[in-house]
């Protein structure tokens, strides 16, 4: 850490190096540069070492271990197993089920969360008194941990929980809601609704920063022409948000594909695998069953999926703008 004293002590060894005749730089300056290099590397060192150890190495390991039979705790070192894990994965019905569930989740959550967040952003973008209060309130679920949110909604979704009581009240006793999380048809929609509730405030902020980049002059010009509110949105706001839009699309998609916490706290993948997900499958294999190699194969397929989908999204949104 002490970059000033360490290099100062070192140059005692450097004068031994004969100076090249071609070097025109005064020795003093070269020494200065060398010292700067050393100090620079000393400052970069800790971060680079940690990133290497905890990002690069595990990323490489995901590739490597997927082709072995590694177990989390095992007396034997892992041995090469070829494509065994992938063969097993692509024959696993649970894996296809998790792909389908995640696709279902993402296809609904992405537009719903982006849309709700945009409406919220438009509502709190107004320069009227009291708007800051609502901005704070909409943001509260974002700072609340997903674990806590899942617990809270576990209660709300009970057969005799808050949601069903409200439904019964609002319909004057005509409708009695289902046991949301124990029903294959309603478990995933319930998780979707809760996830949007938790995440929309986050994307509201990103929409807001996009809205603030749109020039007020455009709106003034539209006003002079007597353009209606919808058309103002359609021809000024919406095109003005194009880069924000692709950003939001990609962040919500990756977040949706990584669905795990809600599932682990609320349903454990059930009922009847109707809410199992890719990350949930990977955790179950790698942690509960200690099959690191199989979990690495799932992680690898998951990463490829994330890469392909966000690549396609980037390509599509780039073409439009």
């Amino acid at each position: 850490m002490n970059s000033s004293s360490a290099p100062a002590a070192l140059p005692a060894t450097t004068p031994a190096v004969p100076s090249k005749p071609s070097a025109q730089k005064p020795r003093q300056l070269r020494k200065y540069h060398r010292r700067e290099q050393r100090a620079g590397w000393a400052m970069l060192g800790p971060a680079l070492l940690l990133l290497l150890l905890f990002v690069f190495v595990p990323a490489m390991l995901a590739f490597g271990l997927a082709f072995t039979n590694a177990r989390l705790i095992s007396p034997n070192p892992p041995t090469f197993a070829g494509l065994d894990n992938f063969v097993r994965l692509f024959a696993d019905e649970g894996f296809y089920r998790s792909l389908l569930n995640v696709a279902y989740f993402a296809v609904i959550v992405v537009p719903l969360q982006a849309g709700v967040a945009l409406i919220m952003a438009l509502l709190v973008n107004a320069k009227v008194r009291g708007v800051n209060f609502f901005r704070t309130v909409y943001f509260l679920p974002v700072v609340t941990s997903m674990v806590v949110v899942s617990l809270l909604w576990l209660f709300i979704y009970r057969q005799d929980g808050l949601l069903n009581e409200i439904i019964t009240k609002l319909t004057f006793g005509a409708v009695h809601g289902p046991d949301w999380l124990n029903n294959t048809a309603t478990a995933m929609p319930a998780i979707i609704l809760m996830s949007v509730w938790q995440g929309a405030g986050f994307h509201m902020i990103i929409w807001l920063s996009g809205l603030q980049t749109i020039s007020a002059e455009l709106y003034e010009a539209a006003d002079i022409d007597g353009v209606g509110r919808w058309q103002r949105f359609r021809y000024i706001t919406w095109p003005g948000l194009s880069s924000t839009r692709s950003l939001i699309l990609i962040t919500i998609t990756i977040q949706a594909l990584s669905l795990f916490t809600q599932i682990n706290v609320m349903t454990q993948g059930g009922p009847l695998d109707s809410t199992t997900t890719i990350v949930y499958q990977a955790v179950r294999a790698g942690f509960k069953q200690q099959e690191t190699s199989y979990a690495s194969a799932i992680s690898l397929v998951f990463f490829a999926l994330v890469l392909i989908i966000s690549g396609v999204q980037r390509y599509l949104t780039r073409e439009k703008s």
Binding site: F54, S299, F302
Partner: peptide, 25 residues
């Protein structure tokens, strides 16, 4: 170095988590 550091941002933690468990062990 900067490019490499920024490149790591595309990797979601969920994909690293399981190999990382084995690695830290």
């Amino acid at each position: 170095i900067l490019t490499l550091i920024i490149a790591t941002l595309i990797v979601p933690f969920e994909t690293l988590a399981l190999p990382l468990v084995w690695w830290v062990n």
